[in-house]
Design a protein around this nucleic acid. Structure first.
Length: 147
DNA sequence: GCCAACGTTGGC
DNA sequence: GCCAACGTTGGC
């Protein structure tokens, strides 16, 4: 899961413990959160728009059911969506729990230069999706890079 | 700050 | 339903 650290970082999550992953307004990302993610699933926490961009740590899905994103109903929120309604919310999300901040970040460059990770969605050209599936082998390889 | 890639919008 | 125009993402 990607987040801009200026907006919400791994340190923010560490401090807050858990958070509702709100503000995602992309259908593909929503579908992954709504349909694919299960309680207990582990998450790579990625810092986008950072210098350098990097994987910063781990989190865990902490909600049993998908959660309607509360910001879609809040007229004061920048994520407000007037076309959504509470009977049939358009934007669903999950609760995310802090697990670990890496002692050393894994820069995007390092992921890109690892031949075993050449097919990872994160390193594909033009891959902007803010919630991405990670294959088991990719997960293992990422963690192995921590040394 | 640039810009490629991608997603969304809206006229037709 | 097509597609041009526009907006956003995010690495560089």
């Amino acid at each position: 899961m990607k987040s801009e650290p200026d907006c919400f970082s791994i340190d923010t999550l560490k401090k807050e413990g858990t958070t509702i992953w709100d503000g995602v307004r992309n259908y593909q990302a929503r579908n992954i959160m709504r349909d694919e993610m299960k309680q207990g699933d582990q998450v790579l926490f990625y810092h986008s728009n950072a210098k350098p961009p990097h994987i910063a740590g781990l989190a865990v899905i902490a909600s049993k059911e998908p959660i309607p994103d509360p910001t879609q109903f809040d007229p004061k929120s920048e994520y407000f969506d007037g076309k959504s309604n509470k009977d049939n919310p358009r934007w669903m999300t999950v609760k995310v729990k802090f697990k670990k901040k890496f002692k050393e970040i894994i820069p995007l460059e390092q992921v890109k230069s690892n031949p075993k990770l050449k097919d990872m969605m994160l390193v594909q050209r033009g891959s902007r999706l803010s919630v991405q599936p990670v294959k088991a082998k990719e997960w293992e390889e990422i963690l192995a890079m921590l040394g």
